[in-house]
């Protein structure tokens, strides 16, 4: 399968006022295939957002410090920046700060309008995107009258209307209540499973990360672990060492194993736990 995003040994640093450069991410080597569902874990300041910004050419790798290829295009290519950003959409943390227009459907239309799509085609895409996130009946509402989860779904619709191949969610559920979180997460699952959109889910919640096919763990700007959720959460001690949690069941199984139980490593769901417990 084709790679939608390709990181080749990428480093990227921010320059502070004195001109000193501190790398926010370094030596990242990563391939994301079309249709993947990837979760990115890491504590605050580990470089997750920087990684996300590298994916759609908001940030560029430091000179001679690797390349980022999006759908075959190197992100340093200035002329194709529209194509890159249309291909890789991004949904952020605060739903209020990413909605531009005073009416839901106008906001969804914002992206397609920017890339110069025909009005009738925009209309079609907007209706389609709103239906997919289940917000069609709210198309004429004012954004500030919606709940957090609904606002976030409008933001997602705004990205879908650009028909991207990949959507990056940068802690998009962290400001929502449990109900809103659930709404957004099931929308994300739907995008990945039914529409085949590649999903990169940056999160602090372990139970969210478990939904992904693959997890990437970052620490101090580097990718330190990569694998299926089961593989990742087998490393309970290593994760604890860098200040990350593991899902609650995984931890219980891990602690029980210390006392002579024999659960297999990296148990992720309560169902698995119960099954093994009975045996």
């Amino acid at each position: 399968m084709e790679n939608i995003i390709e990181f080749n040994n990428v480093s990227c640093s921010y320059e502070d006022v004195d001109g000193n450069k501190t790398p926010a991410v370094q030596g990242i080597d990563l391939r994301i295939k079309k249709g993947d569902y990837i979760a990115v874990l890491g504590h605050n300041g580990s470089g997750k957002s920087t990684f996300a910004k590298l994916c759609n050419a908001i940030l560029l790798p430091d000179e001679n410090m690797g390349t980022v290829i999006v759908n075959g295009i190197n992100t340093v290519n200035d002329e194709q920046i529209f194509e890159i950003r249309q291909n890789v959409g991004m949904v952020f943390q605060n739903p209020d700060n990413q909605i531009v227009a005073t009416i839901v459907e106008d906001d969804v239309a914002f992206g397609p309008e920017n890339i110069g799509i025909e009005p009738s085609e925009i209309r079609r895409r907007v209706d389609d995107a709103l239906t997919k996130v289940g917000m069609y009946e709210y198309r004429m509402s004012e954004p500030h009258k919606l709940s957090g989860g609904q606002k976030q779904r409008v933001a997602i619709a705004g990205i879908i209307a650009m028909q991207p191949n990949c959507i990056i969610f940068d802690e998009s559920t962290s400001m929502l209540d449990p109900k809103g979180r659930q709404e957004v997460l099931s929308t994300i699952d739907y995008l990945n499973q039914e529409l085949g959109i590649t999903v990169v889910l940056i999160t602090h919640y372990m139970d969210e990360a478990v939904r992904a096919k693959e997890i990437v763990v970052m620490n101090n700007g580097e990718v330190i672990l990569k694998g299926t959720p089961r593989e990742i959460f087998s490393n309970v001690e290593k994760l604890k060492l860098i200040g990350l949690d593991v899902p609650q069941v995984t931890e219980i199984a891990f602690e029980l194993n210390k006392h002579g139980f024999n659960f297999s490593e990296g148990i992720l769901t309560i169902d698995d736990f119960i099954r093994e417990f009975k045996i």
């Binding site: 529209f82 531009v100 309008e113 705004g158």
Partner: peptide
């Protein structure tokens, strides 16, 4: 930042749905 991610670069070459 969010507007930039949605390909906004000002009024040039922009169409309108409405």
């Amino acid at each position: 930042f969010a507007m930039e991610c949605r390909c906004y670069t000002g009024g040039h070459g922009r169409t309108r749905m409405r």
